[in-house]
Design a binder for these strands. Sequence first.
RNA 1: CGGGGCGUGGCGCAGUCCGGUAGCGCACCUGCUUUGGGAGCAGGGGGUCCCCGGUUCGAAUCCGGGCGCCCCGACCA
Length: 485
Amino acid sequence: MADEKKLTPRGEDFATWYNEVVLRSELADYSPVRGSMVIRPWGYGIWENMQRALDQMFKETGHENAYFPLLIPMSFIEREKEHVEGFAPELAVVTQAGGKELEEPYVIRPTSETIIYSMYAKWVQSYRDLPVLMNQWANVMRWEMRTRLFLRTSEFLWQEGHTAHATPEEAEEETLLILGIYRKFMEEWIGMPPITGLKSDSEKFAGAVRSYSCEALMQDNRALQAGTSHFLGQNFARQFDLKFQSEAGQEEYAWNTSWGVSTRLVGGMVMTHGDDDGLIVPPRLAPVQAVIVPILRGDDAPVMAKAAEVQARLRELGVRTKIDARENLSPGAKYYEWERKGVPFRVEIGPKDLEKGQLALARRVVPEGEKRKEFLPEADAIAGMPSRLEAFQSELRDRALARREANTVRGVKSLDELHEAIEGGAGFVSTGWNGDPAVEEAVKERTKATIRCLPQEEFRSPEAPTKCVSGEGASVAEVFWARAY
RNA sequence: CGGGGCGUGGCGCAGUCCGGUAGCGCACCUGCUUUGGGAGCAGGGGGUCCCCGGUUCGAAUCCGGGCGCCCCGACCA
């Protein structure tokens, strides 16, 4: 960096910008363990707010939390063929414990389908025991070749939901219910509106019949798979003997779903909203929604008293605040720091404000042609904070949505055109597809773009494509292509 | 695993070519003055120069081997 105080601009090097934001806004830091990061309080606070919102949504739809072991017998993972093939390369395995070689190695869970369904098998006898709707908040480990803070770490935090149902229709409905919850959460809490749809076979979860995903578009126009919801059919139920007796008295295998979102969402938030000054945290996720900076000159007591009073008033209105009373930093230094950390609003209180009965209010994002800072009568500034936070939340979502739409190219009809669009910096590109994996492979080879999903109806183009982008055969589905994280 | 870059006080770097007392900026500590957009002055503390071996009177610097990290690719949430 030419100037240590400034970040590398996004337009110069997006990846470097991303790393600098994560490190310098104190979301996370590299750890002594390869590929594993430390999530610092600012980052963890954001994750906690995500957890709280999602957890409530899960509970409102009938799910309960439980906890299953970190270690899974190796033989469990091996039981489902596609599952083991998908995960084998990235497993971390415990072979020794208590100073002895283990008879059977344990894998550190990369995901918990196997151990969870083995337990469900024990608990389910009758159709009356269904559905089983559980979620767990946990850490998992996947030994990835190359890691990136939040986006792909060896160990990461997530929630994984696992359900069992009596019928495929009900399981499918559950899969889509969760997909909708994820989408709503991403839109309303992260301000990161994804497109949703079905994964192609080559991109689906190892062991699933069908996978659905939320695909968000980052500021560099690469797609981020931000959440997945899988219809597992009876694949795992058969391997783990998860059976029940139906109303008609028949013994049947249960139908499963699994679904998850992870700390990757924090990375998505960074890349959706951040700017060249640093992070921008949507108000609903911000651990501090308004930071109060007292301007101290000589007689500090009245200013500090007012700061405490303002904080108390804002708290009553449900606004999360913090008073930054550090004496070793000038106000300007604090402004830069909190802006880099993405706090939505800053309230300044100085002697002049006390005299005039006003507060200075500064916004993290300044609308075009407006000033960052405005001076408001104290009562208005306080009373108006909740609605300002809500407005700011919506602005972020609207801005992200507009960007996604502006960078989505539709109606592309040939491989040349697709290549040109991707090379030209497009985000999502929609085309027809004949369903042949060979087309995916060829496009990936040439453009580095992959099928992100077969979009759900509302994301499809007004006129469905009739031909495959390859020029060979009719289109069986419209697909969205993008380079992905 | 392939390509590129880099390992020197907490952070960012110079010094390495051409061996000779380990430096700079920021941060930190003390004091005073400051404080409305990254404060100033004075004093001070802190480093097995990634590791191991070799050459040499002497190695951050030269030679050999190893390890680690970041970026780009293949793999992936």
